[in-house]
């Protein structure tokens, strides 16, 4: 399926043979999931987040179509009220 070379060269996204992505600095097994699925699983409230995928904003209307790949880096900013 994937070949990552020798153990020494294995990047962060392949740990123990499981392919993962980085979400808010934490490495998790979310490869293959859509942004919408990820937000739901992590209990982020609808309409109160901004999502950056590899330093690029993910347009809100593409959350269901955007699927995570091994090695992706996701930053989810959650907004709470007050100002």
């Amino acid at each position: 399926m994937y070949y990552h070379g020798t153990a020494a060269a294995v990047p962060f996204f392949c740990i123990g043979g499981v392919f993962v992505v980085k979400v808010n600095g934490e490495i998790i097994d979310a490869s293959g999931k859509s942004i919408a699925e990820l937000l739901e699983e992590m209990n982020f409230p609808d309409g109160r987040v901004a999502v950056e995928l590899n330093e690029t904003i993910v347009p809100r209307n593409t959350y269901s179509e955007k699927f995570l790949k091994d090695g992706d880096s996701v930053e989810i900013v959650r907004f709470v009220g007050g100002g």
Partner: peptide, 18 residues
């Protein structure tokens, strides 16, 4: 961004970034 409501904050941020 200096709004009060979370939904409004997210709207402005996403809109500007997009």
């Amino acid at each position: 961004e200096a709004f009060d409501l979370a939904e409004q904050k997210a709207m402005l941020v996403n809109c500007v970034l997009e």
